[in-house]
């Protein structure tokens, strides 16, 4: 499956990556060749094969419903770019 610039732009937008025009065309090139390599998969007959999402056939272990975490806000917010009154700040979101 060939890749078009609009698809790269769409992926960049979904992934929230600012991409310049120059970068976009270089990504179209790189990504196109990666997908070309990936396209070899299409030649394998996978009829009746179930997808393997996880390498071991294990099941989820459940956690007891207990409060085990305490407040560490101060520690967690030390690496935060912008906080005020314990809140993380982002540019005003209009709903």
């Amino acid at each position: 499956m060939a890749l078009e610039q609009t698809q790269v732009r769409r992926a960049a937008h979904l992934a929230r990556l600012d991409v310049s025009d120059d970068q976009a065309s270089s990504f179209v090139d790189d990504l196109g060749r990666i997908l070309e390599m990936v396209d070899q998969l299409q030649s394998v007959d996978t009829h009746d094969v179930a997808p393997l999402m996880h390498p071991l056939d294990a099941t989820q272990r459940l956690r007891a419903d207990e409060v085990t975490e305490e407040d560490q806000r101060e520690r967690f917010q030390r690496s935060a770019p912008a906080v005020e009154d314990g809140l993380y700040l982002v540019p005003r979101v209009v709903e």
């Binding site: 912008a82 005020e84 314990g86 809140l87 993380y88 700040l89």
Partner: peptide, 15 residues
């Protein structure tokens, strides 16, 4: 009423 250092209006996130 949240503003950043340059006085712009901000939204606060409580998780």
């Amino acid at each position: 009423s949240l503003t950043d250092d340059s006085g712009r209006e901000m939204t606060g996130i409580d998780l």
